[in-house]
Amino acid sequence: MDYSKYSQLLVEVDDRIATVTMNRPDKLNVANAALHTELSTIFVDLQRDRNVDVVVVTGAGRAFSAGGDIDWMQDAIDDLESFDQTRDEAKRIIFSLLDLEKPIIAKVNGHAVGLGATLALFCDVIFASEKAKIGDPHVSVGFVAGDGGAIIWPQLIGYARAKEYLFTGDLIGAQQAADIGLINYAVPPESLDQRVAEFAGRLRNGATKAIRFTKIATNIALKQAVYAAMDTSIAYETITNASADHAEAVAAFREKRTPKFQGR
C-alpha cells in the first residue's frame, strides 16, 4: 500500500504494525480540511493493506489532537454549503474506524480534544500520557458534539457522567479518565512509547485472525448504536454550524475574548 499520498498523516509500517501520526505539530494537530479528508480514508486503506495486523494512532509533537482548526470553522461559517463535505467525511471517519477489523491502539501523547478525543475513544485500546487531558468541548464553540462524541462517551462511562462532560466541555486528566473507564491506561510520558510498543507487539504475535474476529463480534452492538444515532447527531451539528452562538464563539476565539452566548 502506498501511503505517500497523505500529506497531513505520517504512515509507517514496521513488522506488520502501522503507526498513523497526525502530523501538524506546530498546530497541535488540530484538524483542518485536508487532515479531516485524510482521516476519512486512512482506515479504509489500512483495512485493505495485507501487510498490516495492528494499527497505532498518535500525534506528532506535544498533542494528540487539540480539535478543530478555528480558521476552518470560520470557512464553514462563511460558506455553509462547504460543511456538507465535512458532514459526510465525519461519518466516514467513524464508520471506517469501526469497520477496520485490525485492532487499533490510541497512543495519546498529549491533549486529545474535540475530534481528537473522538478519534482516541473510538480506538480499541487507549494508552495516554499522565500529562494528557481528554475532553469534548464542542459546546464551548457553540457546536453539537455530533461527530461521534455524543455516541461514544455514554458507551464508555455511562450517560450521567457523559452528559456532564459533554454539557460542560470540561477536560479530564488522563489518570481520572482511566479511573472512570474512559481510557485503558494512564502511564508516565517517558514510558508511553514502550508500553504501546509492547502491547502492539503482543497483538501482532497473537492469533491475529481470532483477534480480528473478536473485534468484529465485540463491535456489533457499538456499530448498531453508531448507525442508529450518527445521522441525527451530525445533522444537529450541521444546524449549529449556522447558529449565531457558533459564529460568536469562533469570533471570540479569534479575538481572544470570552464569547457571549444568547442561545441562538
Rank of each mutant, 00 (worst) to 15 (best):
E248R: 05
G68R: 04
A247M: 11
P259G: 10
V125P: 02
M22P: 01
P103V: 09
K102T: 07
I172M: 14
T168L: 05
F95T: 12
V52M: 07
E81H: 11
G135H: 15
A112Q: 10
S233Q: 12
Q224M: 09
A145F: 06
K27G: 02
R195A: 12
T37W: 01
T19L: 02
T86K: 09
Q8L: 04
F64L: 03
T41Y: 04
A33P: 08
R92M: 12
L166Y: 06
N29D: 05
G142L: 08
M73Y: 13
I94R: 06
K107Q: 12
D75G: 15
A217M: 02
A112I: 06
R24M: 14
L222W: 00
E164I: 12
L10M: 08
G201E: 03
L203Q: 00
T240I: 00
R204Y: 00
F122P: 06
E130C: 10
A207K: 11
I126E: 01
Q85E: 15
Q74I: 01
Q8A: 09
S82Q: 06
T218W: 12
S4V: 13
G201Q: 03
R92C: 15
K5L: 12
I17L: 07
I77W: 05
F167E: 15
A160P: 10
V30D: 03
V113Y: 01
V196Y: 07
F199P: 01
Q8R: 11
Q224I: 14
H111V: 07
L192E: 05
L9H: 06
Y236G: 03
A66F: 14
N23V: 04
E198P: 00
N23P: 02
A117Q: 11
I152H: 07
T168C: 04
I220R: 15
V54H: 07
I183D: 02
I157A: 03
T21K: 08
E255I: 01
M22G: 04
F253H: 11
A63I: 00
I234F: 06
L10K: 13
F64A: 02
G169E: 11
H111Y: 07
K5S: 14
M1P: 07
Q176E: 15
T118H: 05
A228D: 14
V144R: 09
V30M: 05
K223R: 15
F167H: 10
G181D: 06
R204N: 14
G181V: 08
A217D: 04
A120E: 06
C123Q: 01
G116W: 03
A177G: 03
A177H: 02
G59C: 01
I77R: 05
D71E: 15
Y236P: 00
L115C: 04
L9S: 06
K5F: 10
A177L: 00
D26V: 02
I151T: 13
L46G: 06
G206W: 10
D245H: 08
